[in-house]
Design a binder for these strands. Structure first.
Length: 450
RNA sequence: GACCCUAUCGUCCAGUGGCCUAGGACAUCGCCCUUUCACGGCGAGAACACGGGUUCGAAUCCCGUUAGGGUCGCCA
């Protein structure tokens, strides 16, 4: 049992990477990393019609984003290439010839090559599903007719999935096939193919499918179905990966937010759940938020920066941006939320939220409070959150009003809106000059319109 | 229709014959913190699909029913 584990993810280029596929890739990758084996990427593009470069790119991008690096495959090389099935015709022809020589295949009336299904009872041990027994002689079509022999090559010469899949698993010395449960019923056929080719089949682990939260099938358009949807929505890749790890697998204790190294260490395919998982995007959002909350600030800044730039925010240096990010990070559910929480820190020319102004700043008393606060803050000795708070509260006391009568006008004056991080910390980060300028701007604008 | 897989709170997971008056997490609701919004803390409601067995004892084992999913392509 010193044999090195070799697993593969074998997607067909459909134009996007489905979460189900991503999880299959992830489990294969985890198993390879756990065992010190090899993770191979093989592109199953025998159907030339949908074989496009863009579709392939979506797979590479999605896997790289999730941090699933492959040891062999396109762009990585390896001894068992090429790794696109469209380029492996000669290899398939060789295996087909073997089947012809042994009488396992024949050309049908249309010119397609068919494999004589033995239709013998078959038993195999699945790492996830356990012992599977199938009486192949009972298989029949919808209309009750017996199952037809399996086509392995079309009349036009194109190879068929089942055959190339098996041929490649032999050629690439695959030891474990971890794939979606939709292939469980195909496995007996594959086993028959392995036997006919005189090869030892790999071990199988069929993982349950991912369905929508309501139990319906997940299709491309469903929320959360496509990996690039996560990229575009501003999810943290490590968070999505963590969430996917927990869909159908668990470390058997209550650990949820885990570094990938811990998952690799503890991962065991035999522990994968047998039940189909229903996809809950809200939980994924929570995991994402936990990552935003817990990752080192500098790292978060790396991930947030592209979003700020995309929103056209000029945030100056990293040193100027970090305190702002530290202040608002617990409000971010996604990276894409950052601009909305951070933009007003970096420009004094922000708009005033009409509703907030109507509710609090339109009152003459509110403007008066803002004037008093401006005077107090202009003479404030130490510009710290604590000092700002003390000063504001004493102004309220002197004026004989509740603290809120000062807090709300100040917030709107300094930020233009009624919600945000702690007022005093916001003012501290902004600094005296900017705060006073903003108060003056608000007073000028709103006094004029009063 | 045939064959295969599955069945614990709305959802994700724990539970592998007694520790279960079933545990954790997300979501929901309430309270606290906070004169904003969040974060955080505390608490509540919420499940073993149904029916038969086996056993001194079943969420856990067996059978059936029901329900969901999958396969049965010259798609992958």
């Amino acid at each position: 049992m010193s044999e090195q584990v070799r697993v593969r993810f074998a997607p067909s280029p459909t134009g996007y990477l489905h979460v189900g596929g991503a999880r299959t890739a992830l489990f294969n990758w985890l198993f390879a990393r756990h065992t010190g084996g090899k993770f191979i990427l093989r592109i199953e593009d025998t159907d030339a019609a949908r074989n496009t470069e863009a579709a392939m790119q979506a797979i590479y991008d999605g896997m790289r984003w999730l941090g699933l690096d492959w040891d062999e495959g396109p762009l990585a090389g390896g001894d068992c290439g090429p790794y696109h099935q469209s380029e492996r015709g000669a290899i398939y022809e060789r295996h087909a010839q073997k089947l012809r020589d042994s009488g396992h295949v024949y050309a049908d009336e249309n010119g397609a090559l068919r494999f004589r299904l033995p239709r013998q009872p078959i038993v195999f041990e699945d790492l996830v599903c356990g012992r599977i027994e199938v009486d192949r002689s009972k298989s029949q079509n919808r209309d009750g007719s017996p199952e037809a022999d399996m086509t392995i090559r079309r009349a036009d010469g194109g190879w068929i999935f089942h055959f190339v899949n098996v041929a490649d698993d032999i050629e690439m010395k695959i030891t474990h096939v971890i794939r979606g449960e939709d292939h469980l019923s195909n496995t007996p056929k594959h086993l028959e193919l392995f036997a006919a080719l005189g090869a030892t089949p790999p071990r199988y682990a069929h993982i349950p499918l991912i369905l929508n939260k309501d139990g319906t099938k997940m299709s491309k358009r469903d929320q959360g179905a496509s990996v690039d949807g996560y990229i575009e929505a501003g999810y943290v890749p490590e968070a999505v990966r963590n969430f996917l790890c927990l869909l159908g697998w668990s470390p058997k204790d209550d650990r949820e937010i885990m570094p990938i190294s811990e998952v690799i260490e503890r991962f065991d395919p035999a522990q994968i759940n047998r039940k189909a998982a229903h996809f809950d995007l809200e939980k994924c959002d929570w995991v994402n938020q936990q990552y935003i909350l817990q990752m080192p600030l500098e790292k978060l800044a790396d991930q947030v920066e592209p979003w700020l730039k995309k929103a056209g925010i000029i945030f100056g240096t990293r040193a100027e941006m970090l305190p702002v990010l530290a202040l608002v990070r617990e409000r971010l559910k996604k990276l894409s939320d950052a601009p909305a929480w951070m933009d007003y820190f970096f420009t004094g020319d922000f708009p005033f939220d009409a509703e907030a102004v109507a509710k609090v700043l339109s009152k003459p008393a509110a403007l008066d409070h803002l004037r008093k606060l401006t005077a107090a803050y202009a003479g404030l000795g130490e510009w710290t959150a604590a000092a700002l708070e003390t000063s504001l509260k004493s102004q309220a006391t002197v004026a004989g009003v509740k603290v809120g009568e000062f807090v709300h006008p100040a917030r709107i004056g300094a930020t233009g809106r009624s919600v945000g991080a702690s007022l005093y910390h916001t003012l501290e980060v902004l600094g005296r000059d900017r705060v006073l300028a903003r108060f003056a701007r608000a007073l000028a604008k709103l006094s004029a319109s009063n």
